[in-house]
């Protein structure tokens, strides 16, 4: 029943994009008289254009148009006030009539509603918290794993990697069954005499799920940097008069900044856009910005795709800004992040 259609010019754009790509390919092959290595990147570039570049433009296009394809800023106004479109849909004379009957906008459910912004701020807060906790937990873990004298380091690395081989949904569902009322954790609590607690369907549960899923993305960039670091540097620092703590904050910490930066990037980005974890562990009570966008796109009403696109665009801009900021700290991208 969705009346969504790719605009005519969208087909044109895809066509032009594809043609330009083929033309580039042909020109390249002719210039080099045969297939060279970059030619093998062609399938990926094609994939990128079709599934990343064009969709990005489509998101931008939908953000600035109404369902009829006319230019409008309403979607962003709707981001600011989620009842904006609904209020606009009511004829002014009807609104006047309702108000003359003594019904306020609140009564009609049409008053300014900042749920979009509130959710965004809440999502940013949750992502920030998740990143901070991952950093606090992950840095020491990475440091221990990279310690030359700690013989179990490689084993720990494997213990961190293996869970990542499992689908993250599966892991989250497993976490659900651990936390639920009759779950393992509550059984233990009961056995300890503390009694059953409400561990699921609340904000802490969502946070735990996020940390659980994203922690490895903090640990590995930091581990990589620390592991590659020349241990002679810490010996040199000790030789020059540093005790263990001074070695850490004068040498190890500054040199691990690239790893920390890419760890933060790799945790914050998925954390701020996450939506499924909150649904599973929040029991529908905790809504993140990702859930909001998802709901817009699953909705059947007419202009929700456009509003959802506007929300996505706001998020993209925010992420781009934060990436730009992080890139300033680690210009050489030593941490091997994905920026």
């Amino acid at each position: 029943m969705t009346s969504f259609k790719v605009p005519v010019w969208g087909y044109w754009m895809m066509g032009i994009g594809f043609a330009a790509f083929v033309a580039m390919l042909v020109a390249y092959i002719r210039k080099n008289r045969g297939f060279r290595r970059p030619v093998f990147a062609a399938p990926y570039v094609l994939w990128l254009i079709v599934f990343t570049v064009i969709p990005c433009f489509l998101v931008a296009y939908f953000s600035f148009t109404d369902p009829q394809g006319n230019f409008t800023l309403d979607n962003f106004k709707n981001f600011w006030d989620s009842n904006y479109n609904a209020r606009k849909a009511i004829a002014p004379e009807d609104l006047e009539m309702y108000q003359s009957m003594g019904l306020s906008l609140e009564d009609l459910g049409l008053a300014r509603d900042s749920i979009n912004i509130d959710t965004l701020v809440f999502s940013l807060w949750m992502a920030f918290l998740c990143t901070a906790i991952c950093l606090l937990l992950g840095y020491p873990a990475a440091h221990i794993m990279a310690d030359r004298e700690f013989k179990l380091g490689p084993t720990l690395v494997i213990l961190f990697v293996v869970p990542m081989w499992m689908n993250f949904l599966l892991r989250t569902i497993a976490l659900m069954s651990l936390l639920e009322d009759g779950g393992l954790l509550n059984t233990v609590l009961e056995w300890l005499g503390i009694g059953r607690q409400k561990l699921l369907n609340n904000i802490p549960a969502v946070q735990v799920g996020m940390i659980y899923n994203f922690l490895p993305f903090m640990v590995f960039p930091i581990y990589n940097v620390l592991n590659k670091m020349d241990y002679k540097l810490s010996e040199a620092a000790m030789d020059l008069g540093c005790n263990k703590w001074q070695v850490f904050y004068k040498v190890t910490l500054p040199l691990s900044v690239p790893g920390v930066v890419s760890g933060i990037t790799m945790v914050f980005m998925p954390a701020v856009t996450t939506f499924y974890i909150s649904r599973l562990l929040g029991g529908g009570k905790v809504q993140l910005f990702g859930d909001l966008i998802e709901a817009k796109f699953l909705s059947t009403s007419l202009n929700e795709w456009n509003v959802g696109s506007a929300l996505s665009l706001v998020m993209m801009v925010l992420i781009l800004l934060s990436l730009g900021l992080l890139n300033k700290v680690d210009p050489d991208n030593e941490g091997g992040g994905m920026v």
């Binding site: 020349d230 002679k232 540097l233 010996e235 040199a236 620092a237 030789d239 540093c242 040498v251 040199l255």
Partner: peptide, 20 residues
């Protein structure tokens, strides 16, 4: 006695200068 309390200093094989 740990290295930082010894009155000796070392020149390391690959110099181990602090890159930061």
């Amino acid at each position: 006695i740990p290295p930082y309390k010894r009155r000796v200093n070392t020149v390391f094989q690959k110099y181990a200068l602090f890159p930061h």
